Amino acid sequence: MPGEDFAEAVRTVLGEVPDLPFLPELPARGAPASMTGRTLAVVAELGFDLQPAGWRLTDASGVDHRRARSLLAQDLDVLEEQTQGYEGELKVQVAGPWTLAATVERPRGDRLLADVGARRELAQALAEGLGEHLADVRRRVPGARLVLQVDEPALPAVLAAQVPTSSGFGRHRSVDLPRASAALEPVFAAIEASGASSVAHCCAAGMPIGLLRGAGAQGISLDLDVLAAEDYDALGTAFDEEARIYLGVIPATDPARVPTDQQVVERVLRLLDMLGFDPEEVSDRIVLTPSCGLAGASPGYARRALSLVRESALRLGAG
């Protein structure tokens, strides 16, 4: 979400999408509040620090890592206060192990992606930390049915050897599918063990739907604008397997013209027709969303985008 007022962001979320509210991220508050900083605050046992080039794995937590943890705790306090008596689904989110590995540096430089042992340790520490994090959220909002979104925007680049080295002159080697799955599996297993449901999100082109589903993701969240013809089979299979499908159908930043709820629904119906599914049979497993995070949007449009996905979902019958 845009802005720096977390309490206002929570009020907006609870007001505009009361059927599936979420714990907002406000990256405008700085690196400790970014997607990466937020997730490192959840990772168990490992220490990190913020360097000019970004987050780096260290022997002990630096001041910015401690600040990220403190900020998350403060935000959960606000969420707890504003959700008194709430019952229903509540979504929280973290960056996935491959996006972290492609973003965070090793102690001696370059990305963790280059170190097989370090990235394995990171995935395991993330899985362990998620159990503790979800237990904390459940304690604060006892009536919530938790949904944890695992954000993996860098995963297609990891698989395709498109992540640049720190020098910028090379690319990290591609990761094969079995190894990619091995890092994801403990994360999704930890979510399931906690009693939460999982959804894997990627707003980049080339989302490996089959890989993520095979690793344990119960739901899939993707941007329709980057969906390619070769993705239809995997998406259709996910529908066949009765997965929950989150469709990004609303622009994430202020568009020249905001679509109407009718236009949004027509777009979803065209997709279902192309895939060969009856809307009445699958609409209860479809969640309509913005195409990606709304941090780059104006506050007014962010509010409108949330209300629009709800209006469109009601029209579609997606709930």
Rank of each mutant, 00 (worst) to 15 (best):
L112Y: 07
T83P: 01
P107M: 02
Q84R: 15
L71V: 12
D49G: 12
T83V: 11
E87L: 12
T58C: 07
E80F: 05
G109R: 15
D64L: 15
D75K: 04
L90Y: 06
P52W: 13
L57E: 00
L72Q: 06
L76C: 06
D115H: 14
V78Q: 03
Q51I: 01
L57M: 07
A101Y: 03
R108Y: 09
D115I: 09
G88A: 10
Q93R: 06
D59C: 00
V94E: 00
L76Q: 08
R56A: 09
L79F: 15
L90V: 08
S70Q: 14
R106Y: 00
Q51T: 15
S61K: 09
T103Q: 13
Q93Y: 09
R69Y: 00
Q84S: 14
A102H: 07
R69D: 00
A73Y: 03
L90I: 09
H65E: 02
R106T: 08
W55D: 04
G96R: 04
R69Q: 13
R67S: 00
R56N: 01
A60L: 11
D49M: 07
E89C: 02
L100V: 08
P107A: 03
V104G: 04
R108I: 01
T83C: 10
D75Y: 07
G62E: 05
A114Y: 03
P97M: 01
T103V: 02
